[in-house]
């Protein structure tokens, strides 16, 4: 990164225009075929593969000088990788950033969808490690591609049903497969299945970038996204038996914080902006103190 501060030859948003064009064409096809993974010639980025290069390339290809960018990882704006990616775009694109979900025009995320419903005109960019929902059933791209072409998703249902037979539950708790507009089975990225319903008929455009695996896929706004399930085992999301300890929010996804080595635990919102907004509005949970710690 030091080279970048001395070397002013990088283009706006880092990528060269030829690469942006290639990614932009892939994005348009991805939008036109919701849930289908469009191969693209992913580039090396100045952060490692697996650390958000797909999301970063998608964001870099769509970003303009008027955009306001929010970056979250695990729902939080202040996790190290979110901080790092946000700083990257501040540096190479000079754009405005925010932590407020409602103010952002583009939100890049890893592992969560914000709690507040997204609005028309917003774009949610997901960082995706393994875009192929069938990958763990069939490691070969040549095979999984055929399965998508023939709409042959029996294997996925068998796997989920085996879970039920063995454990009494579908044992998939994150990256829970969805079917898009009744056609493509799609990996929602490793978000908890708690977030799956938020993808369905969202007003925002959702773009998915997998850098290492070289795939881009998309969900246009108002698109039907159904989590796979069975009549006798309908899809259901995680439930927490208590509200957020800081803001008292219910029906949100919570992080478990280990307080000591004697079983002390507390549960707080994973979406830090949601939690802070609620506390600014006066909501308090049972431990609703100040947020002032510092990592060293």
């Amino acid at each position: 990164m030091n080279a970048m501060s001395r070397n002013a030859t990088y283009n706006f948003a880092y990528l060269d225009e030829q690469t942006k064009r290639m990614i932009r064409r892939a994005i348009l096809k991805a939008i036109a075929i919701p849930g289908y993974q469009v191969p693209f010639a992913s580039r090396e980025m100045p952060m490692p593969y697996g650390w958000g290069t797909g999301g970063v390339q998608v964001t870099a290809a769509i970003l303009g000088p008027d955009d306001v960018l929010k970056v979250i990882d695990q729902g939080a704006d202040d996790t190290t990788n979110a901080v790092s990616i946000r700083k990257f775009f501040e540096r190479v694109a000079g754009i405005e950033t925010t932590t407020h979900t409602a103010e952002a025009t583009i939100i890049q995320t890893r592992h969560r969808i914000p709690e507040a419903p997204l609005a028309e005109g917003q774009v949610l960019v997901y960082q995706v490690p393994i875009p192929e929902p069938l990958r763990f059933l069939e490691p070969r791209e040549t095979e999984t591609r055929k399965m998508h072409a023939l709409e042959e998703y029996g294997l996925m249902h068998v796997k989920l049903y085996e879970d039920i037979a063995k454990n009494g539950h579908i044992a998939t708790t994150y990256a829970y497969p969805v079917k898009v507009e009744g056609r493509y089975v799609m990996d929602p990225s490793p978000t908890p299945k708690f977030d799956n319903p938020k993808m369905h008929m969202s007003a925002a455009l959702q773009l998915f970038g997998a850098g290492r695996e070289k795939r881009i896929y998309a969900l246009p706004p108002h698109t039907e996204v159904v989590s796979l399930d069975f009549e006798d085992h309908p899809f259901e999301v995680q439930r927490f038996d208590r509200p957020c300890a800081l803001c008292g929010a219910e029906q949100v996804y919570l992080d478990e914080i280990v307080l000591d080595d004697r079983g002390g635990r507390m549960f707080v919102c994973s979406d830090t902006d949601h939690c802070e907004t609620r506390r600014a509005e006066g909501h308090r949970g049972e431990l609703g103190g100040e947020l002032s710690g510092e990592a060293k």
Partner: peptide, 14 residues
């Protein structure tokens, strides 16, 4: 009282 970990940016710089 619980104090959440913040300040990822300073940690990265350090």
């Amino acid at each position: 009282m619980y104090v959440a970990v913040k300040g990822g940016e300073a940690a990265i710089d350090n």
